[in-house]
């Protein structure tokens, strides 16, 4: 069962959004997040929401998938909302019970912060839903590569990320195997309190780390045998080319920022 996990949350369909240059998509995601924070009035969230919905429709994404990305956040969302609601010193009191005072300003801030969180996460999910991890690391490497001049290891970082992606399922499978082997010899991973359970993970983690180091050694040798010698003189399998769609996407995003600032 662990063998069949899919990495990331990429939603594989063909769409104009999927086909955008990954570099553009990363930049636009950052721009979108900036737009979310630029808005001061609640009305600013209308164009932001429209933008997300438009992108999701163009990407043939079911809205359900975007909402799924927000679900794990619900506790943080509730906290943000309540904290802002109760601990905001405002003027216009809406409700006062015993020591709790809810003001109009507090309510508005609470809504604003929760909305920001929701849009922040859905913007980021939009990127990962429409871009396969390999393409994403590729795009990041190229965006960061100008920084190589000041010694920033752009290629190495991207290489590490793609190797990590490659080995997550391998190590998961291995952890599963070790766990079953330990359980067969009477190890107990499920009962006891939190500390006991954490302690019972030690016999799982030690062999897992030992094997990860061995794999790293093997992989380094295999990479060298395949002529790997860092990022210099390397060509790329994926050719990234900007298209008209990239331009349109930039224009739409720029328009969003202008509208949000004006509101």
């Amino acid at each position: 069962m662990l063998k069949d996990i899919t990495l990331g949350q990429y939603y594989p369909v063909k769409s104009p959004v999927h086909n955008l240059d990954p570099r553009i998509k990363i930049i636009l995601t950052i721009a979108f997040i900036v737009a979310v924070f630029l808005g001061t009035s609640l009305w600013a969230f209308i164009p932001v929401a429209a933008y997300i919905i438009l992108a999701a429709v163009l990407a043939h994404l079911p809205l359900k998938l975007l909402l799924k990305g927000i679900k794990p956040l619900r506790i943080i969302l509730i906290f943000t909302f309540l904290l802002n609601l109760f601990f905001n010193a405002g003027e216009t009191v809406l409700l006062e019970v015993w020591k709790i005072r809810i003001t109009l300003e507090g309510l508005l801030t609470a809504i604003r912060f929760s909305m920001r969180l929701v849009f922040l996460v859905s913007g980021a999910s939009l990127l990962t839903l429409t871009t396969p991890p390999v393409v994403l690391t590729d795009g990041m490497e190229r965006l960061l590569s100008p920084l190589r001049k000041i010694g920033f290891p752009a290629h190495e970082l991207a290489m590490m990320m793609s190797i990590a992606l490659r080995f997550i399922p391998v190590l998961l499978e291995e952890a599963d195997k070790i766990m079953k082997a330990q359980m067969a010899r009477g190890a107990d991973f499920e009962s006891g309190n939190l500390i006991q359970r954490a302690k019972s993970m030690v016999p799982l983690l030690v062999p897992l780390f030992v094997s990860a180091f061995r794999r790293a050694g093997d992989l380094a040798m295999a990479m060298e045998a395949r002529c790997y010698h860092g990022g210099e003189g390397r060509t790329r399998l994926r050719v990234l080319k900007l298209t008209m769609n990239d331009l349109y996407a930039c224009l739409i995003t720029a328009a969003l920022i202008v509208i949000v600032v004006l509101i």
Binding site: V134, R166, D218, L219, M223, R226, C227, R234, T235, L237
Partner: peptide, 22 residues
């Protein structure tokens, strides 16, 4: 497992080619 580098077959086969500058 310890000699495949990329998480997609196409990229893995291309890994050596990228290294030698094809």
């Amino acid at each position: 497992d310890n000699q495949l580098v990329a998480s997609i077959v196409r990229d893995d086969v291309g890994f050596g080619l990228e290294n030698i500058g094809v």
